[in-house]
């Protein structure tokens, strides 16, 4: 369902951020993207989100070549994907409910539908009792759960998480991992970039290791590898 073919990305004609990367991610996969800073994880995610265009190569998603997508089609592609960031990126002036509803409002769904769907998602991430709180009244783990709720409220086929546990303590990180794993079991493909060795090792999922823009290893039940 996601396929990268010989994808290269070069910034400013100098640094090669991705060097002929080919990758195939099947529907329902749970994939860890690991590698040191600057290895190309963020670039890869930006290409999937169509925030950046590859210098060469082709990217397919749900049998569509997204590298050939017209600019005005991009919003609709993004509705098929949910994104979670390390820094949560919640709107501070909106409540938990509003932050999640916000993502639905974009798609032109009826207010009735929103009032039905948002509480359902909030109960899934165990935040029903926090619906009317503002982000600054929540702990880091709770904030990340809100951002996950926002990412999946539109039922995306892919959930992309860019270091979702980067700002969280180990216990809270596991809470988030359980949630992501639950979402994955419901059929959503999850792609997660991370530095967290412990999580990668214990989860026993597919691990793609990037180093200097190249895929150096891709194992189905992988562990975090040391860079030599």
């Amino acid at each position: 369902m996601i396929r990268l073919v010989d994808v290269c990305k070069r910034y400013n004609h100098e640094v090669l951020a991705l060097d002929s990367v080919s990758l195939h991610i099947k529907k329902g996969d749970f994939v860890f993207l690991v590698g040191s800073s600057g290895a190309g994880k963020s670039t890869l995610i930006k290409l999937l989100l169509k925030e950046e265009e590859p210098t060469s190569g082709r990217i397919f998603m749900n049998n569509r070549e997204i590298t050939r997508l017209a600019g005005r089609q991009v919003p609709f592609l993004r509705r098929e994907m949910g994104v979670v960031f390390q820094d949560f990126r919640l709107l501070p002036k909106k409540t938990v409910f509003e932050n999640v509803a916000f993502a639905m409002e974009m798609t032109g769904i009826s207010a009735k539908q929103i009032r039905k769907q948002v509480p359902m998602i909030l109960s899934m991430v165990a935040l029903s009792n926090r619906a009317n709180n503002y982000p600054n009244q929540l702990s880091g783990g709770e904030q990340q759960r809100v951002s996950i709720a926002r990412a999946i409220v539109n039922n995306p086929t892919v959930l992309i998480a860019d270091e979702p546990t980067g700002n969280l303590d180990p216990d809270t990180s596991w809470e988030i991992m359980k949630l992501l794993s639950f979402i994955n079991k419901r059929g959503t493909t999850v792609i997660m970039a991370t530095h967290n060795r412990e999580i990668v090792d214990i989860m026993q999922k597919r691990v793609v290791v990037l180093e200097k823009g190249k895929i150096v290893s891709d194992e189905m039940r992988g562990v975090y590898k040391n860079e030599r």
Partner: peptide, 9 residues
């Protein structure tokens, strides 16, 4: 954020 959740321009 609006762009990430697929808001049109």
């Amino acid at each position: 954020i609006m762009k990430y959740v697929g808001a049109t321009n």
